[in-house]
C-alpha cells in the first residue's frame, strides 16, 4: 500500500466522532444509573443489562442476516438505545417484555428505516410506547422506592406522583388534600420516589445534562425551551387555580420531563438541525406534554409528545433553514 495519501481538503479533522458522542451520552447517564441502582437495587441492573444485551443482539442479527450490511454494533448507538429504553421502564418489568421492547426499538424503529441516522422516531421511545400500549398494567405499576431496596420479587408497587395527582384530581380531590400523598420537591430532586428507572433523581439527570452541555454534545436550546414551556404553561394553570393544578416545580421534577428534555428530545438523529428548528421542536414538545398531563387520559405525556414532534422534524428542517449569508439583508448595494 502506498503511503502517500491524496484527498480533497480539509486535511485535518476535529477530534469529535460519532462514537465519542454516543459514549459521552452514556457517561452523562451514569449518575442517574447509579441512583436507580441505589433506589431499585438489583432490579435496575437486571432491566438495563437485558435491554442493552437484547438491543445489541437484535442489531447484530438484523445487520448480519436480514440486511446483510456491515456490522456496526460497536458504534455505541445500539448500546445507547438499550440504556435509554431501560431508563424508561419500571424495574420490575418481566424480562420477556424488555426483550420485546428492544426488538421493537431496534427492529422497527431503527433498522426498518435504514439504520443509524435514518430513523424518524427515537427508537427507545418507540419501544417504550409500544410496551406502554401493549402492557399497560405492567408498565404502570412501579415499585415504590424505599421499600424495595435490595428486593427483586414481591416488591411493593404503587403509582408515580403524577399518577397519584391525576387519579386524585379525577376523583374530585384537590391538590391540598393530595399533598400528603405526593413526595416533597426535595425528595423528587434526590430521587426517592416511584417511577421508571431513569426518571428518579432530578439532580443526577441535571448533572449529566451539564456534562453534555460542557462537552457540546447537546446545545441548550431543546432542554431549556422544553422545560421553559412546561413551566410557563403549568404555571399559568397553577396561578389560575392552585387547587386543581399542580405547581410547575412539581411538573418539572416528576415523570420523564427531565429525562426527556435532556436525553430523549436532544437525540441528534431525531431532532431538528438548526437552532431555530430546535426551539420550535422543544416548544411543541412542551405544549403537547402539558396538554396530555393536564387533560389527557395518561398521567404522563413526555414520550408521546417527543414522538409526535419527531414526526414533524423533517418538516421543521425544510422550513426553518439557517439564514443564508447575504440573503434578505438591509445592506445597501452601491
Amino acid at each position: 500500500m502506498p503511503t502517500t495519501i491524496i484527498s480533497a481538503s480539509p486535511h485535518v479533522h476535529s477530534s469529535r466522532t460519532s462514537k465519542r458522542l454516543m459514549y459521552d451520552v452514556l457517561i452523562a447517564l451514569s449518575p442517574a444509573f447509579l441512583v436507580s441502582i441505589y433506589v431499585f437495587g438489583i432490579g435496575a441492573l437486571l432491566v438495563t443489562a437485558v435491554a442493552v444485551a437484547s438491543c445489541i443482539f437484535f442489531e447484530f442479527v438484523i445487520q448480519k442476516y436480514l440486511l446483510k450490511t456491515a456490522i456496526t454494533i460497536t458504534d455505541g448507538s445500539a448500546l445507547l438505545t438499550g440504556v435509554l429504553l431501560a431508563f424508561n421502564l419500571p424495574s420490575n418489568l418481566p424480562i420477556w417484555m424488555i426483550i420485546v421492547g428492544s426488538l421493537v426499538a431496534i427492529g422497527i424503529a431503527k433498522s426498518s428505516f435504514g439504520g443509524l441516522g435514518f430513523n424518524i422516531f427515537n427508537p427507545a421511545l418507540v419501544g417504550r410506547v409500544f410496551l406502554l400500549i401493549s402492557f399497560p398494567v405492567q408498565m404502570t405499576s412501579w415499585p415504590t422506592a424505599i421499600e424495595n431496596q435490595g428486593k427483586l420479587v414481591d416488591a411493593v408497587t404503587g403509582a408515580t406522583p403524577l399518577g397519584i395527582v391525576k387519579e386524585g384530581l379525577q376523583m374530585g380531590e384537590t391538590m391540598t388534600s393530595l399533598a400528603s400523598q405526593i413526595p416533597s420537591n426535595m425528595d423528587l430532586l434526590l430521587g426517592i420516589t416511584g417511577g421508571s428507572l431513569g426518571e428518579m433523581s432530578a439532580l443526577a439527570l441535571l448533572l449529566g445534562g451539564i456534562y453534555l452541555l460542557i462537552r457540546k454534545v447537546i446545545s441548550w436550546h431543546i432542554p431549556i425551551m422544553m422545560l421553559g414551556t412546561i413551566t410557563l404553561m403549568t404555571g399559568i394553570f397553577w396561578l389560575v387555580n392552585p387547587d386543581l393544578y399542580a405547581s410547575p416545580m412539581f411538573h418539572i421534577l416528576t415523570g420523564g420531563a427531565l429525562l426527556g428534555a435532556i436525553y430523549m428530545a436532544t437525540d441528534l438523529v431525531t431532532s431538528p438541525m438548526t437552532r431555530k428548528g430546535m426551539v420550535i421542536f422543544a416548544v411543541g414538545i412542551g405544549v403537547i406534554t402539558v396538554v396530555i398531563r393536564l387533560f389527557g387520559a395518561y398521567p404522563e405525556g413526555v414520550s408521546f409528545a417527543i414522538l409526535i414532534m419527531n414526526a414533524f422534524v423533517p418538516l421543521i428542517n425544510t422550513y426553518f433553514k439557517p439564514r443564508r449569508f447575504g440573503s434578505k439583508i438591509k445592506t445597501k448595494i452601491v
Binding site: S18, L268, R275
Partner: peptide, 23 residues
C-alpha cells in the same frame, strides 16, 4: 488518514459551522 465515513447522524454540526449559512 481520514476516518471511515459512516452514516450521517443528523447532528447538524455542519449546518452550525457553515459560515455561509448553508446545509
Amino acid at each position: 488518514s481520514r476516518g471511515k465515513a459512516i452514516n450521517c447522524i443528523r447532528c447538524g454540526e455542519c449546518v452550525y459551522v457553515c459560515p455561509m449559512g448553508l446545509e
